[in-house]
């Protein structure tokens, strides 16, 4: 089915469309959320909240403002970050800052969404450190171009081109 149609049905509260979209994107959201909260139970809790929120706020998605995936990504990142700032959250914030998404890739022994998952994960973790940093900030953490430039202490334009090159490398790994 066409993604646009699927999304518009989801916005009309079509439960089947919602489930299809969930199956398409939930693992990605789970990865992003888990990378931020670094706790299995909390990650699942945030996942639930994210998709319940997505259902209730489905009409707020506007295709002219960005991709549906990006919309969902924003909700997930914000929900996960909110969680880390909540009172009950016990993880050491120092650790969270220091670790990148690649640190959780090799440890995932129960991932079963595809047979070559571990193999591809290994290649992803072999990306240059410069790429790991920029992908982490832009996709996993939701930094703006400016925020990323400041954090990485590089010019704004460099963030753009470096990210472009890193995504090209990633595409080589995951899409071929």
């Amino acid at each position: 089915m066409q993604l646009d149609l699927l999304i518009s049905k989801f916005q009309q509260k079509d439960e089947n469309a919602f489930e299809t979209l969930y199956n398409m994107y939930s693992t990605s959201m789970h990865g992003v959320i888990y990378n931020i909260v670094r706790d299995h139970n909390i990650a699942e809790e945030v996942m639930q909240d994210v998709f319940i929120k997505a259902w209730h706020k489905s009409e707020s998605y506007d295709a002219t403002k960005g991709r549906f995936f990006t919309w969902l990504l924003n909700i997930s990142r914000n929900a996960a970050i909110d969680k880390t700032r909540s009172k009950g959250f016990k993880n050491n914030s120092k650790n969270l800052d220091a670790e990148y998404f690649v640190d959780i890739l090799p440890s995932q022994d129960d991932l079963n969404n595809s047979t070559d998952a571990i193999g591809v994960g290994k290649f992803i973790s072999l990306l240059k450190q410069k790429c790991i940093e920029v992908l982490e900030l832009l996709y996993f953490k939701g930094y703006t171009q400016k925020e990323a430039a400041e954090t990485l202490e590089i010019p704004i334009g460099t963030v753009k081109t470096r990210n472009r090159n890193c995504i090209n490398e990633l595409r080589e790994i995951v899409l071929n």
């Binding site: 789970h30 990650a43 890739l105 995932q108």
Partner: peptide, 24 residues
């Protein structure tokens, strides 16, 4: 680009997330 990012982020997922939909 989106497909690549979907795969990248999915690889960071700690477990299968299908069952979470049941509670959703």
């Amino acid at each position: 680009i989106e497909a690549a990012v979907v795969k990248l982020t999915a690889h960071a997922a700690p477990s299968n997330s299908k069952h979470i939909f049941t509670s959703v």
